[in-house]
């Protein structure tokens, strides 16, 4: 299964953290630091896999991809295919790209719950439930629509309050 999905920037600042098992906040930060240490020491032309036994326990691997200023990191065990997950990272980035129109780090910074929504359309409980980016975007947009519907009401309330 997938144990966690992490998005870090090249300075080591976390941009998105999602663990598929409960982890305390301090421990999360600790893990982020260790993962960043590993990733930042690797040049770009190297393989996208790193053994992560000392961070996440035996038989775990980091599968990561470096896009512009961001690292997308998936933590997986033996039940996942490394190359498959690499494709999945591509799917995630594509979906984000479609949702935000040319996604960049700032989009992820300012829309952390939207990014979570997209991610939740792909992975549930550490298992992949959807791999087609168009389906993912469709579902995510449906969720956004439902959200903004209620948001609109709130805005309307707010504006009445202003007056």
């Amino acid at each position: 299964m997938i144990h966690a999905v992490l998005v870090l920037n090249t300075q080591g600042k976390p941009r998105l953290i999602k663990f598929y098992y409960p982890v305390r906040a301090e421990k999360q930060q600790d893990i982020i630091r260790n993962v960043y240490k590993v990733l930042s020491s690797r040049a770009d032309h190297l393989s996208n896999f790193v053994e992560a036994a000392d961070i996440f326990g035996s038989e775990t691997k980091l599968v990561y991809k470096h896009f512009a200023t961001l690292y997308f990191v998936f933590v997986i065990d033996n039940a996942e295919s490394e190359l498959g997950i690499l494709d999945l990272i591509q799917v995630l980035v594509e979906s984000l790209d479609r949702c935000f129109k040319n996604v960049c780090e700032l989009d992820i910074v300012f829309n952390f719950n939207k990014v979570h929504t997209v991610l939740d359309e792909i992975i549930v409980g550490g298992h992949v439930v959807e791999t087609s980016s168009s389906e993912i975007v469709k579902a995510a947009e449906e969720v956004f629509k439902q959200e903004s519907f209620t948001d609109m009401i709130a805005i309307a309330l707010k504006s009445t309050g202003k007056r």
């Binding site: 600042k13 976390p14 941009r15 998105l16 953290i17 305390r24 906040a25 301090e26 999360q28 930060q29 952390f112």
Partner: peptide, 10 residues
Amino acid sequence: YIHMIGGIDM
């Protein structure tokens, strides 16, 4: 958000 980014206990 600050829980996720900064490891603040919530």
